[in-house]
């Protein structure tokens, strides 16, 4: 019994790790560019498919990891510079529909190239480790460790480097950052490319765990949104904390009572939103649609 739950906890940590990686872009998009980034999961899907393509053709997972991340970052670059620049500052509906269209185009392209059926991706290594009596694949543990490392790297970057501080300042007040004479467009682009690269990276890591299908991004999108909303818009720490909560709700909750794996995250979000409309770590006064009450 204990082993069962311990396994669930560790599986949950892996889910948290992936959730965190793919949510960073949505979180920062909310915070910095003030847009609702519906298309982030395109990069996640691209990353996963690149892994599938390269693992099945060359057998090298590392190559898939590299290419998946780069392709995702590259697509992010194109989308940001060609399209998103035109929607910054526009109304909510507009940005949501435009970014959702990009999402649909991305899914369409995937279907066109790879077809509709789901594809398996082999685990890069099949080692099983025993942690306090629970048997878990080493790969899952590593995914979690990588994700946490990524969080600390980003956190260090944001707090210790001047460029990172400019990003934090931009999240607080983009007009003022511009007023100082900082090229905010470049900050947007670089941040966006890194974020989409991370989403792709998440897709790569998740590919062996869930397999790849053209619609894999849809479900992930919902979970990612719940994660970001629960954590609070624009707060990286909030995103991590809520990813950790979500992972456990899905995994442990699902072990206790099957349907909780799916309903649990929504329930948690509903409750938190009712009492804290800005999420766990959200900043007040960050309105997109309506004026604050």
């Amino acid at each position: 019994m204990f082993e069962l739950y311990l396994t669930a906890v560790i599986f949950g940590l892996t889910i948290s790790g992936i959730l965190f990686l793919v949510s960073v872009g949505i979180c920062i998009g909310f915070g910095l560019m003030r847009i609702v980034n519906m298309e982030q999961m395109v990069y996640y899907t691209f990353g996963a498919y690149m892994t599938y393509a390269l693992v099945s053709s060359t057998g090298s997972f590392l190559l898939g990891l590299l290419c998946g991340t780069l392709v995702a970052a590259g697509s992010g670059y194109i989308v940001e510079t060609q399209l998103l620049r035109r929607v910054y500052g526009k109304e909510l509906m507009f940005t949501m529909v435009v970014t959702f269209s990009v999402f649909m185009i991305g899914i369409g392209l995937i279907q066109y190239i790879f077809g509709l059926s789901s594809k398996p991706v082999g685990m890069p290594f099949k080692v099983i480790v025993t942690i306090m009596g629970a048997n878990v694949p080493l790969y899952r543990v590593i995914v979690f460790i990588i994700s946490i490392t990524v969080y600390f790297l980003i956190d260090m970057f944001l707090n210790k480097t001047i460029f990172g501080r400019a990003i934090r300042a931009g999240i607080e007040n983009p007009d003022q950052v511009q007023g100082l004479g900082i090229n905010i467009r470049r900050i947007f682009t670089i941040t966006f490319v890194v974020a989409s690269g991370l989403a792709g990276f998440g897709g790569v890591l998740n590919a062996p765990l869930v397999g790849v299908t053209p619609y894999m991004g849809f479900e992930m999108l919902l979970f990612a949104f719940i994660t970001v909303i629960l954590g609070g818009l624009g707060s990286l720490k909030g995103t991590l904390v809520s990813a950790l909560i979500m992972g456990q709700v899905v995994s442990v909750g699902g072990t206790i009572y099957g349907p909780l794996a799916f309903v649990g995250p929504f329930i948690v979000m509903f409750i938190v939103i009712l009492f804290r409309p800005t999420g766990l770590y959200g900043v007040k006064g960050r309105a997109f649609g309506f004026e604050e009450e």
């Binding site: 001047i162 501080r165 400019a166 934090r168 607080e172 003022q176 900082i182």
Partner: peptide, 15 residues
């Protein structure tokens, strides 16, 4: 910038 210290605020200006 509420989140940054006075020093960091100035550093941004210098940057």
């Amino acid at each position: 910038f509420a989140d940054l210290s006075v020093k960091e605020n100035l550093e941004l200006g210098s940057y």
